[in-house]
Amino acid sequence: MATDDLIQLTDVTKSYHQHTVLHDVNLTIKTGEFVAFVGESGGGKSTLLRLIAGLEPATTGQLMMDGRSINGLNTVARVMFQDDRLLPWMTVLENLSFKSRDMNEKVRAQELLDLVQLHDFANYYPNQLSGGQKQRVALARALMASPKLLLLDEPLGALDALTRSRMQELIADIVDQENLTTILITHDVREAAKMADRIVAIKHGTTGLTVPGHRHQTDEMAMIAVANEVQEFILSD
């Protein structure tokens, strides 16, 4: 893993009218690192991801990526949401290439379908796919632009347990193959422990606990211990 800092947040605050969602967030993420943000609903996890994606501005503080301020849409980042957001009137391949006539785009789209194990589904429509298959297409679409930063906003929350486990493994494999810096938003602390290099617990609108994750490790008991530590912190008064 590279040691250079890709993302730096300094004293970041986000308020909506009189309500402060995030306050005094300070965080550094290194190139190639997989970081999971966990916390209760409404705690600011997804808001923080949206700030990094450039979908919303911070109220105060500074957000930097590659040494430059994030002002407006972060064009080298891509977001994968909980809902697949596929266009129902387009085939799987068209959802990736948006009917581009550029042969390189079509080749890239087919390569990504191979990567997410959907090479035989290029001409299917979204309503012909299972929930897990739709999320694989959404993942492939997020990778089309070869982003430097992959943002995962609870993308597995609506899947059944078995499909979710398979998707966790698929995402982990692809992140390794593509050498992607990745941020995962999740309520599932065990998912965070399994997938991430580092887990950041967000509580009361700020980063309150950071612990190592167990990505690439197989010690189930150690993984459970980390997950329990994070959960206890989040649920404590």
Score class of each variant (00 low, 15 high):
residue 2 A to Y: 11
residue 2 A to N: 15
residue 7 I to R: 12
residue 8 Q to Y: 10
residue 10 T to I: 10
residue 10 T to A: 11
residue 13 T to Y: 06
residue 15 S to H: 04
residue 19 H to S: 11
residue 21 V to S: 13
residue 21 V to E: 04
residue 30 K to V: 02
residue 31 T to N: 13
residue 35 V to I: 14
residue 36 A to P: 01
residue 41 S to T: 11
residue 42 G to Y: 05
residue 42 G to C: 08
residue 43 G to D: 02
residue 43 G to R: 01
residue 45 K to A: 05
residue 45 K to R: 09
residue 45 K to F: 01
residue 46 S to I: 01
residue 47 T to M: 04
residue 51 L to K: 06
residue 54 G to H: 05
residue 54 G to D: 04
residue 55 L to N: 06
residue 55 L to F: 15
residue 58 A to S: 14
residue 60 T to V: 05
residue 66 D to P: 00
residue 67 G to V: 10
residue 71 N to F: 00
residue 72 G to Y: 08
residue 75 T to I: 09
residue 78 R to M: 08
residue 79 V to A: 03
residue 82 Q to D: 11
residue 86 L to T: 07
residue 86 L to M: 10
residue 92 V to A: 06
residue 95 N to G: 07
residue 96 L to W: 07
residue 97 S to N: 10
residue 99 K to D: 05
residue 99 K to V: 02
residue 100 S to A: 10
residue 103 M to W: 06
residue 104 N to I: 03
residue 107 V to F: 09
residue 109 A to V: 06
residue 117 Q to F: 00
residue 119 H to N: 13
residue 124 Y to I: 00
residue 124 Y to H: 15
residue 128 Q to F: 07
residue 129 L to Y: 12
residue 130 S to F: 05
residue 130 S to E: 08
residue 133 Q to N: 10
residue 135 Q to I: 07
residue 136 R to Q: 09
residue 136 R to L: 04
residue 138 A to I: 02
residue 144 M to Y: 07
residue 147 P to N: 14
residue 148 K to R: 15
residue 150 L to Y: 11
residue 151 L to H: 03
residue 151 L to E: 02
residue 153 D to C: 05
residue 155 P to N: 10
residue 156 L to N: 04
residue 159 L to E: 12
residue 162 L to P: 00
residue 165 S to D: 08
residue 169 E to D: 15
residue 172 A to C: 12
residue 173 D to L: 08
residue 175 V to G: 08
residue 177 Q to F: 00
residue 183 I to G: 04
residue 185 I to M: 03
residue 186 T to C: 02
residue 187 H to N: 12
residue 191 E to T: 02
residue 193 A to S: 14
residue 196 A to L: 05
residue 196 A to H: 04
residue 203 K to E: 11
residue 209 L to N: 12
residue 213 G to I: 02
residue 215 R to L: 03
residue 216 H to C: 10
residue 219 D to K: 11
residue 221 M to V: 14
residue 225 A to D: 14
residue 228 N to D: 14
residue 229 E to R: 15
residue 231 Q to C: 00
residue 237 D to N: 15
